[in-house]
């Protein structure tokens, strides 16, 4: 493959998928504190065109655009909830990797912890029940003779 063709292919493909135009945009300088806020925000935002990546991870053109957009919003002093709302207004809740706590998601957020309590409750009842059962009827030995032999081997 000729050098020229290689360069053309790489330029075409690497500078954005197909021949999508990438506009040169001015850098948006951020303070250290703003950089930290941006870094905290990006993993919570979903790239819409990728299969399952956050804006922090993705290199898809739309993700780069949105990242630049979010950077601009951070620079303009908007808070994290405001920025999230800005994106939700345009793309819907799908854009949030951390779903908001509301009527639809309380089961999602509280379910696992309720399940721990439930399981612990069942376990404790089981344990208490086992003692009561043992007290009521002395158990026959669990292992029969043949089994004992197997286990001793």
């Amino acid at each position: 493959m000729s050098r020229l063709l290689l360069a053309a292919l790489l330029a075409g493909v690497l500078l954005g998928a197909q021949a999508q135009v990438t506009v040169a945009r001015p850098d948006i300088p951020l303070s250290t504190e703003q950089e930290a806020r941006l870094a905290e925000l990006l993993p919570d935002l979903r790239c819409l065109v990728c299969q399952n990546e956050s804006l922090a991870e993705s290199r898809a053109p739309l993700a780069l655009d949105l990242k630049y957009e979010v950077r601009g919003l951070v620079a303009s002093g908007r808070s994290a909830p405001e920025i999230k709302q800005y994106l939700v207004d345009r793309y819907g809740d799908f854009v949030l990797f951390r779903p908001p706590f509301d009527a639809r998601t309380w089961l999602l957020w509280l379910g696992p912890f309720a399940l721990v309590l439930l399981a612990l409750g069942v376990l404790l009842r089981q344990i208490r029940g086992s003692r009561r059962a043992v007290a009521a009827a002395p158990p026959k030995p669990v292992d029969d003779a043949a089994l004992k032999k197997l286990l001793d081997e």
Binding site: D44, N52, S54, D93, F94, L96, F97, P99, R104, L108
Partner: peptide, 23 residues
Amino acid sequence: VGTLYPLVIDALNLGKISVGPPY
């Protein structure tokens, strides 16, 4: 629950949500 939640919400016609690493 986290993996299937978006599917359940969608099946109930409650919209599309994402459940990702932060959750």
